[in-house]
Design a protein around this nucleic acid. Sequence first.
DNA 1: CACATTGTTACCAG
DNA 2: ACTGGTAACAATGT
Length: 272
Amino acid sequence: MPELPEVETIRLTLTPKLTGRTITGGEVLLPKLIQRQSPVEFLQEIRGRKILELDRRGKYLLIRLSGEFVIAFHLRMTGQLIVEDITQPSANATYLKLQFDNGTELRFRDQRKFGMVFLFHADTPPISITKLGPEPLTEDFSVNVLKKRLSGRKLAIKKALLNQEIIAGIGNIYADEALFLARLHPTRMANSLTDNEFQQLADSIVQVLKAGINFRGTTKRDYRDGEGKAGSFQDHLKAYGRKNLPCPNCGHNITRIEFGGRGTYFCQYCQK
DNA sequence: CACATTGTTACCAG
DNA sequence: ACTGGTAACAATGT
């Protein structure tokens, strides 16, 4: 569930708690979490390193360490990252702990255990990160970038938005919301959009992701920020999850279909 | 208790 | 070689 706005909110809330900290130890309670090396090697490699800054690429949270090392978290469906005092009891389904020099620790919880943790040198990131498409909230993203990425592609626009190699950070919720805002039907072929529609879509993507960040993410169930707090963008969703509820534009009920193997919400009347 | 859930990847066909 | 579609997968609360 954590998509770009949720991961960005986690990054923002964790930054003041983690920057400048030195990792003094750690614990891996679910070995398969660590993708690139054994849990022991992982802990050995990070111990004593200092956290320089927190970054984000698509849905990955990146913790940059001294010595050009990077820890990348992918939260998948139910991953949570929270900093708490070591003396506080940790919640159930806590599978990774990183202790710091000030008596706090970073805790990774994951009810479904689908999350992934990569440790790598800045020179050799995992392919899943290197091949990510453009960041929609950076200056170099524009309607022309979007157009170029979709040109010659013969697939539905929603599938394109969900493809992290075409554009990074958008998941099921924000794809449906962006398409609703752009008044585009999710099954429209990407290469059938007019210039106007491309512009609408590019604007809508930026708008909906920024709104998601402003409301500190969407909490349908599990999502929490770095302080353990829920987001509130779920109260502002216009399409996603609103089956048989009125469309905010026209009042007709929102339709839910199964598309590309996932639930897809849209307004039949507004989205063409 | 079978199912829904979701992002990613493996695999296959074109 | 590349693209797109589908299925499999991870695990568990409902």
